[in-house]
Each structure stands twice: as C-alpha cells, then as structure tokens.
C-alpha cells in the first residue's frame, strides 16, 4: 500500500511539475522585472526546478524518514502491486 502511495505521490508531482514547466504558467513569469537583481522568469524556472528536485528526493529517497512514508520502506521496496 505504501508503494502505491509513493507511486501516486510521484504521479501527482509529475503533473505539478509538468504544469509548472509549461505555458501558460511559465508565461505568467515573462515580465520585464527583476527580483534581487535576477530576471523573474529565470528565477522562477530555477526555483521551481529546485522545488521539484527536492520534492522528488523527499518522496523517493530515504530523506523522508520523518514523513508518513517513513522508515522501514527499503525492506518493502522490492515489489509493487
């Protein structure tokens, strides 16, 4: 069941990332302005990207020991329903 949960989380993350990396969301940040000296679009894409990477790491890896998907997961890691 936990395996399924992990799969579902990743699919959700995939959809989220897909939306974040595509127009029209990307278009929203195409403004001629800077934040902390960085163009908004540039800042947005890298920030979103980093978020996706961190979230992927949390869902997939063992870094989520505190999360509900927590410890003991590797033991069950072999099979998927």
């Amino acid at each position: 069941m936990r395996q399924g949960l992990r799969g579902e989380r990743l699919v959700a993350l995939f959809i989220l990332a897909w939306l974040a990396f595509h127009p029209p969301i990307v278009t929203l940040f195409g403004v001629s302005a800077t934040v902390m000296g960085l163009p908004v679009l540039y800042l947005y894409l890298f920030a979103a990207w980093l978020c996706v990477i961190v979230l992927t790491g949390l869902v997939v890896g063992r870094g989520d020991a505190g999360g509900p998907d927590g410890p003991g997961e590797t033991a069950r890691g072999e099979r998927e329903g």
């Binding site: 595509h22 127009p23 029209p24 990307v26 278009t27 940040f29 195409g30 403004v31 001629s32 302005a33 800077t34 902390m36 000296g37 960085l38 163009p39 908004v40 679009l41 540039y42």
Partner: peptide, 30 residues
C-alpha cells in the same frame, strides 16, 4: 548576477532574451 543582469536589461534586445516567454513559440517549447 545583479550587476550582469542590470547591465543586460538596459538593452531592449537582451532584456527580451531574459524575459521572453515561450508564448510566441508555444509549439516549439512543447
């Protein structure tokens, strides 16, 4: 970064590169 981008934004051409959204080339982005 700040200095570099500030200087670039002074030019409309370069500013376009930094802020150009894929809307014009939507298909290409996909």
């Amino acid at each position: 970064f700040g200095d570099l981008f500030d200087k670039a934004m002074e030019s409309a051409d370069f500013a376009r590169l930094l802020t150009a959204t894929p809307s014009s080339t939507f298909g290409n982005w996909m």
